[in-house]
Structure formats: C-alpha cells, structure tokens
Amino acid sequence: MIMSLPSITADRDRTHPGTQFVDTTAGTGATASAAVSAGSGHQVGRPSGRATAALTVAVLIAFGVILWGGYTQGWAWTGITAKDTLWHWLQLLLVPIAFAALPTLLRQHQAMRAERKILMGGLTVAFVAFVIIGYAAPLNWTGFTGNTLWDWLSLLLLPIAITSVRFLRAERTITAVHYGIGAALLAMLGLLIACGYLVPWSWTGFTGNTFVDWVQLLVLPVLFPTVVVPATAAWLTATTSRPKHRGGQPVATPVERL
C-alpha cells in the first residue's frame, strides 16, 4: 500500500516575516519611463545648433549696425567716432575674446596636431606682416603708428597668458625644444630691455618706466597661469573628489572629524 504525502506549500508571509515581496515589473516600467523623461528633458533644455547660429548672426548684425551708425552717421550714443582705430578695438576686445576661448582650450586640447601648428604659425606670420605694413605704409586706420614695444607688451601679454594656460599645464606636450624657445625669448627680451634703457632705443618705449611700471605690466600675465589657474584647478579637483552619501552631502574625512 502506497501512501501519498500531502503537498506542502510554503507560506511566504510565515517563512520570512521581515521580508516584503515587491512586484518588480511596475518598478522597472516606472524606472524606464523616468529615464526616458529625464533624457527627453535634457534634450529639450539643451540649445540647438540652429538657435546658437541664429543668435550669433543676430549679434554680429547688430554690432555691424552699431559700427556703421557710429562711424558714418555720427550716432553719439554709440560712443564710436572716426578717431577710434583698430588699436582701440584690440585694447577693448582682446582680453574678453581670450577669456571666451579659454573653456574651449581647456576642454579640447590634448596635443596640438600638425595642421593646427601650421595654421597658428601662418596666422602669427600674417599678423606680424600686417603690423609691419601698418607702420611702414602707414595705415592710419590701424592706429599702430606711435605705439612702442612697451605698448604692444601691455596689449598682448595678458591675452597670450590666458590662452596659453592649457598648453603650459599639459606637461606631456612641453618638451626640451619648448623650454629652449622660452629661454631664447626671455634672453631676447632682456637684451631689448637693456638696450632700451642704455642706448637708448626710443622705439622700445622702455625709457622712463620704473620697477613699479614693470610689476604692473607683468603681475597679471605671470600670476594668472602660474598661481590663479593651478590653485583654482586644485580646489575644483578636491571639491569634486570628496565622497558623498545618498543625501548629496559630503562625508567628513577622518581629519575633519577631529
């Protein structure tokens, strides 16, 4: 005689009193829909390329109209007159343009490609040739005539320091050749300074400038890439690398708990 054992069905509520069984199907769907919503919201919030291009064109057109009105129609409210030369615009715009280009340089630069080097070299040669023609012709609308080497250093040193920050911090891209070029440029500048004061060469514009004038000329171009940017980068790195708990607040380190 064969006896059949009764089937035993485990009661999940009694087997694990502290465990709650959750239907994961609804959660998965909710999570997926939330992710889609977040993704779509991110795409909506991001400005499109057409909108950016349209805004850029509108700004350029408005700027062109202001220039036309100031130079040709005598619109006094623009503050632009026929006496404003290219030199005045360089003094006004070079530093803002350098700051505007800095985020792109910091984000994209790793190692400069050969075509970029050729392009930058060509632009530099073209600009130097244009400056020489502006002095030799002379082209009065450039406003270059009468400006000395001191004036050019005052104009260019800070924008060059701003745009070269990423290149100075990319240790892998700086070689012995770069250090050699830098040393040669410093030696050339020292020779020009000595001749400007001792000969004196009036075209340098160095005669009459005191130690305080040199400090005012060099303090920002030197401090910005060597002190300001490294300190800011170190602060940002330390801030973003601190661990955070689920609430989003930074977790105190052992040193901070003491």
Rank of each mutant, 00 (worst) to 15 (best):
R166I: 01
L156V: 13
T142A: 14
G146Y: 01
L139E: 08
L93N: 14
T104C: 12
L123I: 05
V165I: 10
I160H: 10
L149Q: 05
R107D: 11
L106W: 04
Q91C: 08
L185G: 11
S164K: 06
V125H: 02
G182Y: 03
S164D: 13
L186M: 14
G143E: 02
I118C: 00
L153N: 07
S164A: 14
L105V: 01
T142G: 08
A176Y: 12
S154I: 12
T163Y: 00
I181P: 00
A161G: 06
L158E: 00
P159C: 04
A100V: 12
A129F: 06
Q110I: 14
H109Y: 13
A114N: 11
L185Y: 09
L157E: 08
S164V: 09
L149K: 05
V95M: 07
R113I: 00
I174L: 12
A176F: 07
V128F: 10
L168M: 08
A126Q: 06
L90I: 04
T148H: 03
P159K: 08
A184L: 11
L153A: 06
P138Y: 12
V165T: 08
L102M: 06
T145E: 13
G143C: 09
T163E: 05
S154K: 13
V131C: 06
F167L: 08
T104Y: 13
L106H: 05
R166F: 05
R116S: 14
L158M: 10
A176Q: 10
D151L: 03
G182L: 06
L105D: 00
L139F: 15
G122R: 04
A137K: 14
G122T: 03
T175F: 03
H109G: 06
T124F: 12
P138C: 11
Y135C: 05
V165W: 00
R113M: 01
A183M: 07
L149M: 12
